[in-house]
Amino acid sequence: MTLARSSDIVFARETAMKAMAKIGASAVKRTKFVTAVSEIARNAIIYGGGGAISFRIEGVAPTIRVVAECKDGGPGIADMDLALKDGYTTGSGLGLGLSGARRLVDRFNIVSSSKTGTTVTLESYAR
C-alpha cells in the first residue's frame, strides 16, 4: 500500500482498523493502534517523501497480533534519541507523533539510515 498523498493515510487507517477487528481487538487497543499507524504514515509522507505500509497478522491467541511495517525513502533520522523525545520536531507538528506512537503499541521498532530511509514496525495484541 503506497503512501504518497494525505488521503492514503485514511486508507492505511481503514486497513489497520480491519486487521485489528479481525483479531478481535478491544475498542481501546484498536483506537490506539490505528492512531499510531496514522502518525507513522503521516510522518512517512511529510518527512520521508512518501513510502509504503503493509499489514500482517502474526501468532495465535492469546499472542495473536497485528504487525504494521512502514517504509519511506526519506533522508533518515539523524538523531534517533532526539526524534523519540516528546515535543521535538523538525517540522511544524507538535513532536508527539513518533514518541506518542511508541507509547500506543505493544512493540515498536525503528531503523533509519540516510541511505535506506526509515522503517517503523508497530505491533499490537488484541488485548
Binding site: 475498542a27 481501546v28 484498536r30 483506537t31 490506539k32 492512531t35 516528546d86 507538535l94 508527539l96 514518541s99 506518542g100 507509547r103 500506543l104
Partner: peptide, 14 residues
C-alpha cells in the same frame, strides 16, 4: 469524545 479516543490522546500527550 469516545473513551478509547480520550485514552489514546492522553497517551499521546495531547
Amino acid at each position: 469524545m469516545r473513551p478509547a479516543v480520550a485514552m489514546t490522546l492522553v497517551e499521546l500527550g495531547m
